[in-house]
Amino acid sequence: MARLSIGRYVAYDTFIHRLDPRNKILALILLMVAIFFQFSTYEVTFIVDGILALFIFGLMIVSKIRFKDFIKSLSALWFMILLLLIINIFIPGPNKEAYGVAWTMWNYDVYWASIFQSIKITIRLILMISLTLILTQTTKPLDLTFAFEWFLAPLKLFKFPTHVVAMTLSIALRFIPTILDETHRIMNAQTSRGVDFKHGKFVEKMHAIVSLIVPLFVSAFERSDELADAMEARGYNPKGKRTRFRKPKWSFKDSVSLLYVSAITAGVVVVSVLNLAITSDLFFAFSLLVEFAIFIIFVLIGIFYTTFRRKV
């Protein structure tokens, strides 16, 4: 049975795996902010993005994400990249002439800026996808819902049922593989009855999909009915108080790593605000070096944790 490898938790015991889920979500948000900051020139953009890319790929190595999974998660992106390139080339924008003309196509000037812009967005998308990949592959869905619930806690003041939302989320996550199995089963059953999911015109395909969707929904509703019974039988009361089995602990390494990520984001913000032109080569060379050194240290810590700590 084909399993979804994208966005699924992979059980390893690495430094990243052991971080508090709340920390990971905060770091994800911080790094995303850093990724999508705007800079004065493309040179600065590519240097900063490069440093961020180094850091994020470092994180991927530390959290033992398989290269195959990474490539798979990008597979939906190729179409986007093409679209971006076309849009950027044909839509006029300000300051397009700044980097000159790359080539002329049937009397139409293709500017370097358009190409740079597409590359920039592509890099940023890849980085963003990598970050989410790291988050989902190193964090159990249940821990993620716990973190969400924790972040939503202030809404409790307004009588918002954060617990119910978290429970709904965790059950949804729990049932994804079950429903996927069911989908495959129904598809096989319908195929054996002559429904063709793979070939045919669009309308025919839509008809085929209906023959999948209807039984799937019927069974999902039956499931939810039985699940509700099972939950009630075991004393679940959405309004009642409950204790907790899972309690993530914020540890020292969480504080340190969050501080580190904050520093990176702060650095990116500073670079953006300073509106640096490319002339300050030395500064960039220096910051690149510092970042690289910190990155190496981070990787070493990760390797240390993964290889030595487990045996202790």
Binding site: P141, R174, R242, F245
Partner: peptide
């Protein structure tokens, strides 16, 4: 109900 064996048993205990 839980996402792992221990979570499932814990579900009733939490309640």
């Amino acid at each position: 109900i839980g996402s792992t064996v221990q979570d499932d048993i814990a579900f009733g205990l939490e309640n």
